[in-house]
């Protein structure tokens, strides 16, 4: 399949809106091609902002997934406008208030990948690359994973692979890039606005189930190189703690197995393949816990990690 050379940003907003209305617009994100239909103008604006550097096609022969965001066909929409996400005519979740449509598209695309892409071992984790090696940041919501990920991607000299979904090839364990928008919540939005003033954002959405959210366009470099994989080298569990001095602690591998399994979307679906993938991943990675409060400190620590292959004791060493 030939890769179109044109990126979304070269399309006028009006043209993009029309293509979305007709359901012919397809965007390439990493190895996946999503064909998207929506007549909502704010969805078009959001795609225009967040995918400006991504290649697109109009009415391609093949797309991996066909998704749509539109008003649900129920009576309620006359009282209070809503938006609903569909994949192949099927809505996997309840409609949301109309103004959350752009965010709903992003979440729906994430859901689609997590629910269907069992060709990969999929972790709920951010991943970034430097020097051909990947760092994986698994963490439950609220630990500051996305904030740290945004800081590393915009100012830390790391290439963003993915903020939400780490996609590992179960044979080679290479991490595949998605190079999609970074989803930030509440105070993190303001922190990153200050930290990376040049970044491009989608409009903020208020009162979602996660509070106030906004999406951040991935750095151009990460999009241009989104077909380059990286071999995982570090697994780091970040934790933001107000006022804390930066503290990097090696983690025993035995104590890292289960948290990784719990952060995987398809650990049990892949059965033995999933078990083997984690075991081999732990074999080749150094594992750490990382507590921080200042992003500048965090960048310094991550520089140190990338530059040194620290001599860890046997039970920790890769």
């Amino acid at each position: 399949m030939k890769q179109a050379g044109v990126v979304v940003g070269e399309l006028g907003l009006q043209q993009l809106h029309e293509a979305l209305q007709k359901g012919v617009f397809a965007v390439q994100t990493g190895l996946l091609r999503f064909r998207i239909r929506s007549s909502f103008e704010d969805v078009a604006q959001s795609i225009h902002a967040l995918y400006a550097e991504h290649p697109f096609q109009l009415a391609p022969e093949f797309a991996d997934f066909h998704v749509e965001v539109r008003a649900p066909w129920n009576l309620r929409r006359w009282l209070r406008p809503q938006a609903e996400f569909f994949i192949d005519g099927d809505p996997p979740f309840e409609p949301l208030p109309r103004d959350q449509a752009p965010a709903l598209l992003e979440w729906g695309m994430n859901w689609t990948i997590a629910a269907s892409c069992h060709q990969w071992f999929t972790l709920h984790a951010a991943s970034l690359e430097r020097g051909g090696h990947a760092v994986i940041l698994p963490a439950p919501p609220g630990t500051g994973k996305s904030t740290l990920c945004a800081a590393l991607a915009f100012r830390g000299g790391w290439r963003l692979l993915s903020d939400e979904l780490t996609l590992l090839d179960p044979d080679t364990l290479y991490a595949n890039a998605l190079a999609r928008a970074i989803n930030l919540k509440n105070a993190s939005i303001d922190i990153i606005r200050q930290f990376a003033p040049a970044a491009v954002w989608s409009p903020e959405t208020y009162d979602t189930s996660k509070g106030r959210v906004a999406h951040l366009r991935p750095p151009i470099e990460s999009v241009r190189r989104m077909r380059e994989t990286a071999s995982p080298r570090w697994i780091i569990f970040p934790k933001y703690q107000a006022g804390a001095a930066p503290l990097l602690t090696p983690r025993p591998k035995t104590a890292t197995f289960m948290p990784l399994a719990e952060n995987a979307f398809n650990y049990s679906t892949l059965g033995q393949t999933g078990f083997d993938a984690i075991a081999r991943l732990l074999d080749q990675c150094d594992c750490y816990d990382f507590v921080y409060s200042q992003l500048d400190d965090a960048l310094e620590v991550f520089d140190w990690i990338a530059d040194n292959s620290p001599g860890l004791p046997a039970e920790y060493a890769a």
Partner: peptide
């Protein structure tokens, strides 16, 4: 382009 979808589907039914 069809292959990964078949691989994923096989993993799901095996599981």
């Amino acid at each position: 382009p069809v292959q990964p979808h078949l691989t994923a589907a096989l993993a799901l039914s095996t599981h």
